[in-house]
Write a protein that binds this DNA or RNA. Structure first.
Length: 506
RNA sequence: GGGCUGGUAGCUCAGUUGGUUAGAGCAGGGCACUCAUAAUGCCUUGGUCGUGGGUUCAAGUCCCUCCCAGCCUACCA
């Protein structure tokens, strides 16, 4: 079996600053990528920017700079998401890179050779001010539905991809690969859409030139589809290298707004080019504001990830986004719920657990890991929670149930607090220090499971927790031995890892 | 118009192929404890499972009606 795992975010269109939606999508991929690394897999996790197109060219023109200068600048903003959120992406692809131009052109050639590309004319009602085409049905009183400005019938030479040839092939493909589109609701939507029959899509433009040139016809540049979607192959090494190490990708994680392109166009193109299809396109939902409305500047209800991280912390934001909603569904960002979750899960449950045990042990056992006595039935029952934890978390993660995975872990966090309470080691501090130490030691052994398995979700804090136990870095392999700490080994005096968020400010 | 989701305790949600007194977290109330970040543990309040029918020995869990919310219905990622 292949021991690699390849996961991607969409490549983001850098016509504005990155926002919560970008951060969220990459975050979900990051958690999945990190978990697979813990398993010891060879992971490739990629994100990037989609830098071609008329809009970019137009923005650059307005600023009187070249499109390349414009995207070079905008790309920097998107790259700041990685340190902000502590993302672990292995690659950051830009469509203006040379390696990508080669890949996109190779993709084009293969489609052309296979007979799925033809030249014709693209026509429709074009609104000059909107720079967009509309269909007959979309027009309002014969004018642009967006701006109300007049439209004119335009025709332009364009290359087309024979998507229409794939209606039945795709339906069969979905049938044979039930996990290709997740979750179920998106799968249903896509299938019912395809059942209506597919039309060919226009894949080149000649009105602007900021794009990958069409092989053999320099008057045309590729329109978004082939250019953008092929990025996933570029990262895997196409067409230069043997791509089989990471291709087919395990998952493309995308927002529901771009589900169709990934669930229909992309597999059709791959089938046409005789390239294996990715295993899964996972479609996630969107975050709306607390009032249930879309976040927008004019409503003033935008949640800015940069501000949240600065004010409350990176792990806090990560945990909230990953655990507050079912992965795949929509969510509303509630400030109160965010604070409640951060305090309850991080400060009270997990952070305080480590602090109460480790500071107690440090103070009373000379800063050394205390000795373990005979395991009692209670000890065994307690530790049994942790023995199967990695498998339970894995089962949820493999099924893209990120929030359920987190719940599995917190069930054990609560069990540890409960064990501490029931064993009340403080009562043995004087009369029976060995028993006191034994109890703390049992807890410390359980901690390595927690420090390890929380890492995909709250990497910064989890690393600190691991350090407190004396580990540089933990992987699932470190969890094979239930008892593995070294008696007598010194450990640092612990410091609180997750601070409580005070609720004074209104 | 057609299609897809969902409507379960104050809040956010779990509820496998229908089967004992419907669960969790948070919030609320009471108690306990002191190792800890006024943290933790225990107990507890709270639900006619959207509506009205039906199938069944048995339905939150299947079928039908209706109400409510959201989403999809192509080339502006």
């Amino acid at each position: 079996m292949n021991n690699s795992f390849y996961i991607t975010t969409p490549i983001y269109y850098p016509s504005g600053k990155p926002h919560l939606g970008h951060a969220y999508c990459t975050l979900a991929c990051d958690a999945l990528a990190r978990f697979n690394r813990l398993e010891g897999k060879n992971v490739l996790f990629a994100t990037g920017t989609d830098e071609h197109g008329q809009k970019i060219q137009q923005k650059a023109d307005e600023l009187k700079i070249t499109p390349q200068e414009y995207v070079d600048n905008m790309r920097k903003d998107f790259k700041t998401l990685t340190p902000l959120m502590n993302f672990s992406n292995d690659d950051f692809i830009s469509t203006t890179e040379e390696r990508h131009k080669k890949a996109a052109q190779e993709m084009w050639k293969r489609l052309e050779k296979a007979g799925y590309i033809y030249k014709s004319t693209y026509s429709g009602w074009y609104c000059v001010s909107d720079e967009a085409y509309f269909t007959e049905e979309e027009l309002v009183d014969g004018k642009s539905p967006d701006s109300g400005n007049p439209v004119e019938w335009m025709e332009e030479d364009s290359y087309f991809f024979k998507l229409s040839a794939f209606t039945d092939k795709l339906l069969e493909f979905y049938e044979q690969n039930p996990d290709f589109i997740q979750p179920e609701i998106r799968r249903n939507e896509i299938i019912s859409f395809v059942k209506q029959g597919l039309q060919d899509i226009s894949i080149s433009r000649s009105k602007f030139n900021w794009g990958v040139p069409v092989p053999g016809d320099e008057k045309h540049v590729m329109y978004v589809w082939i250019d953008a979607l092929t990025n996933y192959l570029t990262v895997a090494g196409f067409p230069e290298k043997d791509i089989t190490e990471f291709w087919p990708a395990n998952a493309h994680v995308v927002g529901k707004d771009i589900a169709r392109f990934h669930c229909i166009y992309w597999p059709a193109m791959l089938i046409a080019a005789d390239i294996p299809t990715p295993k899964t396109v996972f479609v996630h939902g969107h975050w709306v504001a607390e009032d249930g409305r879309k976040m927008s500047k004019s409503l003033g209800n935008v949640i800015d990830p940069y501000e949240v991280v600065e004010q409350f912390g990176q792990d806090q934001l990560r945990l909230y986004l990953l655990s507050a909603i079912t992965f795949g569904g929509d969510g509303s960002f509630s400030r109160d719920a965010f604070i409640a979750k951060s305090n309850s899960y991080l400060a009270n449950d997990l952070g305080n657990l480590f602090q109460r045990v480790l500071s107690f042990a440090h103070k009373n056992f000379d800063g050394k890991i205390p000795a373990l006595g005979e395991l009692t039935d209670e000890d065994k029952a307690f530790l049994a929670n942790f023995e199967g934890l990695a498998d339970r978390v894995k089962a949820q993660m493999d099924d893209y149930k990120i929030n359920s995975a987190i719940e599995e872990i917190w069930t054990c966090v609560r069990a540890a607090n409960k064990y501490m309470e029931e064993q009340h080691p403080w009562t043995y501090k004087k009369e029976d220090p060995a028993k006191c130490g034994h109890i703390l030691r049992v807890l410390m052994e359980s901690f390595k499971f927690l420090a390890c398995l929380t890492e995909p979700f709250i990497p910064t804090g989890a690393a600190k927790l691991a350090n407190q136990l004396g580990y540089e870095k933990l992987t699932l392999a470190d969890l094979n031995e239930l008892i593995s700490l070294q008696e007598g080994k010194e450990f640092d005096k612990p410091e609180g890892v997750f601070a409580r968020i005070q609720i004074e400010e209104a």
